[in-house]
């Protein structure tokens, strides 16, 4: 394969969206072509940095309550059956605790 062909398919390769034979052809090219191998590695590294580096703020309970009250006011057909606790609130877990699967 030529570098231009590989670059065109690199995104699909990284997302594993190609046939097995095409995946192998690209792997073979990457083993022999330092420039394309660098391209693939550096993009994957940037993607990993993005995943680790984005902020993940959480909605505070007072903010959530305010928004839910706003929704309840906006839709008068909603019955006043609100519980005062978040249905998915969890006790604080230590870092060692395994997160429950969702």
């Amino acid at each position: 394969m030529k570098c231009a062909e590989v670059r065109e398919l690199l995104g699909n390769y990284m997302d594993q969206e190609l046939t097995e034979s095409m995946m192998q052809r690209i792997e073979k090219h990457l083993l022999r072509c330092p420039a394309c191998a660098y391209e693939a590695r550096s993009i994957e590294q940037a993607r990993e940095m993005l995943r680790r580096g984005v902020e993940s703020p959480m909605v505070s309970e007072p903010l959530g309550e305010r928004i839910l009250n706003h929704i309840a006011e906006r839709f008068p057909h909603l019955r006043a059956t609100r519980s005062t606790e978040q249905p998915f609130s969890l006790p604080l877990l230590s870092l060692e605790d395994e997160a429950p699967s969702v």
Binding site: S56, M58, L68, I71, T81
Partner: peptide
């Protein structure tokens, strides 16, 4: 059913805020 609203809200509120 307000409880259905709360369920949907808390399920996605954090990810939408983020």
């Amino acid at each position: 059913d307000m409880q259905a609203v709360e369920t949907l809200f808390w399920r996605y509120a954090d990810s939408v805020l983020a």
